[in-house]
């Protein structure tokens, strides 16, 4: 892989089977087996033949409707899901925020949860100890809240803490999914600032957002996904305009079939 690339995605397809049964229980499985019935399943093609290069120091925005395969793609880049076909090559340490409040045990304090989040992402205790106060400060937690159980936090504090943990892990590649809706306007500006700093340090960010202004403000490239396929790649403003047109008109670009 060329050295300037942070992520290379080659002809990636991710397909999985989901059960259509109301309850997946052993009891139902035994009942089905005794009646010689098969489980009702459906194959989901979450990502179809996607090829993409993301260079170091860039911010890639991903737009698309629900079910477009954005989160599945992000999880595959993070190594959480396995490709069905093709491959993903990642050059650098990844930090993720793909679900808010990740790994947080509500009974434990914010400080304890930061330690757990840091260890899960591969940091050691010394590195985490150095960062704990920085994370608490970035998350703008009121005085003393860092040592209170997370269940006492407001949803905003919870989201800000999740974001602060993800961006403070000095990642080479940061994968964010809908994270920016966590805080208020002031925190959003602060999080933009932090992401710009990460880019200035040649770190790479991939962001999935339904807030299209985020994509145009922050990203230098954007892709539009629809039903698992890549519809278009280009400058964020153009992609967002095309996507908005699609949302209003409901038709895909004429060159979609050629993609």
């Amino acid at each position: 892989m060329p050295e300037e690339l942070a992520i290379r995605i080659e002809n990636l397809s991710i397909t999985y089977k989901v059960s259509l049964e109301a309850k997946r229980t052993l009891k139902n499985a035994v009942m089905r087996a005794s009646l010689k019935q098969k489980e009702r399943t459906r194959m989901i093609e979450a990502v179809k033949g996607l090829t993409l290069d993301v260079p170091h120091g860039s911010v890639l925005g991903i737009v698309g409707s629900n079910g477009a395969g954005k989160s599945t793609l992000m999880r595959c880049i993070a190594g959480i899901l396995s490709p069905t076909e093709g491959r993903v090559i990642v050059n650098g340490k990844i930090s993720t925020l793909l679900a808010l409040g990740v790994g947080f045990n509500p009974a434990l304090s914010g400080r304890d949860n930061i330690i757990l989040g840091g260890l899960a992402s591969g940091l050691n205790m010394e590195e985490i100890a150095d960062k704990t106060d920085e994370i608490a400060a970035f998350a703008a937690l009121p005085d003393g809240f860092i040592d209170l159980p997370v269940r006492t936090y407001s949803s905003g504090m919870y989201g800000r803490l999740s974001f602060a943990v993800a961006v403070s892990m000095t990642p080479d590649i940061l994968l964010l999914d809908e994270a920016l809706s966590a805080g208020d306007a002031a925190f959003k500006e602060k999080s933009f600032e932090r992401m710009r700093e990460l880019c200035a340090e040649a770190r790479t960010i991939v962001i999935v957002s339904h807030a299209l202004a985020t994509v145009t403000d922050l990203c230098d490239t954007a892709i539009w996904m629809h039903k698992g396929a890549l519809v278009a790649k280009g400058k964020p403003q153009e992609i967002v305009d095309d996507y908005l047109k699609f949302l209003n008109v409901g038709s895909l670009p004429s060159n979609y079939e050629d993609m």
Binding site: E3, P55, S82, R87, V88, I89, N91, K93, D172, E201
Partner: peptide, 18 residues
């Protein structure tokens, strides 16, 4: 953009499990 100083590349390849 050049890779920053101190950046230690760690290449991971995710492929289907054969």
């Amino acid at each position: 953009m050049p890779v920053n100083e101190g950046f230690v590349p760690k290449i991971q390849v995710f492929e289907p499990h054969r």
